[in-house]
């Protein structure tokens, strides 16, 4: 099946490896993913105030373009995924939003482009069992832990991604690569998101809690699907120094591990 791929701003700049490895893995799995030519910014955050329709223009423009291609739209960045899912929900369920936005953009869009996260493609369309079969360099012996963050899971009524309190998709993914999936309590807690720009101290504390809890549970690597989570979790590793000198917990995009496990030969050095 052919998919339209939506990369988003960060994957073209600070998180190139996220997109590169996603494409590598897709090729190895025989998934045809073609970048949506007309893509533009998703808007970064979903507008929460009821009268704000303007921030919906940008995501709807990309969605409408994808609609013309007639393919599922695959996302990687959790934030983009969140915005698209909710923009679709608004266009579908809120008549005023739909009329205003599609009227302004002069497009005919009814909110029905199917937006799927790359992980959902792996789970529902490839299947973790098949991934397990395709893995050539299993990550055996590695104790990895999922870090879900917020945007993929909540609000469940609009995201329909996984159980918001007890998600399993990333753990199933980790196990399919041959690694051990370690549980720890903070995997669905917020990392502080963009507060790391305005409230650094707070973001540091929040990340500190997550990292320490992961460390207590023997986690050797965190697996994420969001460039902002990646940034925050990687940036505040110093929180660990007071308990364990210097050494931090590496943070991986799930696609990095996937590409690595699907590749031939001895496991490569970890990418940075």
């Amino acid at each position: 099946m052919r998919y339209s791929l939506y990369p988003g701003c960060t994957l073209k700049t600070k998180a190139k490896v996220f997109e590169e490895t996603a494409l590598e893995a897709a090729e190895a799995l025989g998934l045809e993913m073609v970048e949506l030519e007309e893509w533009q910014c998703c808007g970064a955050v979903y507008p929460l105030a009821k009268d704000e329709y303007f921030p919906l223009l940008s995501p709807v423009r990309s969605l409408a373009a994808a609609g013309e291609r007639g393919e599922k739209l695959v996302t990687l960045c959790a934030a983009c995924h969140h915005v698209f899912k909710r923009a679709n929900h608004a266009i579908k369920g809120d008549r005023e939003a739909r009329e205003k936005v599609t009227g302004y953009l002069e497009v005919d869009y009814a909110g029905d482009v199917e937006v799927v996260h790359y992980l959902e493609v792996l789970k529902n369309e490839v299947g973790f069992d098949r991934i397990r079969e395709k893995v050539k360099s299993p990550l055996e012996g590695k104790k990895l832990a999922a870090y879900y963050g917020c945007l993929l899971l909540r609000p469940e009524k609009e995201m329909h991604f996984d159980d918001p309190e007890n998600p399993t998709i990333l753990e199933d993914f980790i196990r399919s690569l041959g690694a051990e999936a370690v549980q720890y309590p903070y995997r669905t807690d917020c990392c502080g998101a963009y507060l790391s720009i305005t409230e650094e101290g707070l973001a540091r504390d929040t990340v500190g809690k997550i990292l320490k809890s992961a460390q207590r549970n023997g986690v050797e690597g965190l697996v994420v699907a969001c460039p902002l989570c990646h940034y925050n979790l990687a940036k505040y590793q110093e929180s660990l120094t007071d308990t364990r000198g210097g050494e931090g917990i590496p943070v991986h995009y799930f696609t990095e591990l996937l590409a690595q496990a699907l590749a031939e030969g001895p496991a490569e050095e970890e990418r940075t």
Partner: peptide, 25 residues
């Protein structure tokens, strides 16, 4: 939130997503 508030380090390292989100919010 004001652009001048961003540190050079943030401008260099922070993902666009964070900066745009911040301004949006």
């Amino acid at each position: 939130m004001h652009p001048r508030q961003l540190t050079p380090e943030q401008l260099k390292d922070a993902p666009q997503q964070a900066i745009i989100s911040g301004f949006r919010k």
